[in-house]
Amino acid sequence: MKIVAVCGMGIGTSVLLKMNAEKALRAMDVDGDVEAADIGTARGAARTADIVLTSAELAEEVGEVSAKVIVINNFTDVNEITEKLDQSIER
């Protein structure tokens, strides 16, 4: 399971999202790598990823990718991230 957390710059919001996505994976007992990426490198990173996590604003900029794009409203809410990942991960 490879997940890419995308933000505009790759140092701020995507880092928070990555940390909370890692917590979510641990809570779900799923093995996975979470990588933070900026919008410029996101499309490349998404090519080898299963899931892209990002905000509603940036989801459009990510555009069509083979990975499943999940929009997170509250990056600090591990419960929201867990629920949305849980719906997308086949186990």
Binding site: G8, M9, T13, I39, T54, E57, N74
Partner: peptide
Amino acid sequence: ALDDHGPYIVIA
């Protein structure tokens, strides 16, 4: 960054 990408920094 806000002009380019919209208010994505409003994360919670």
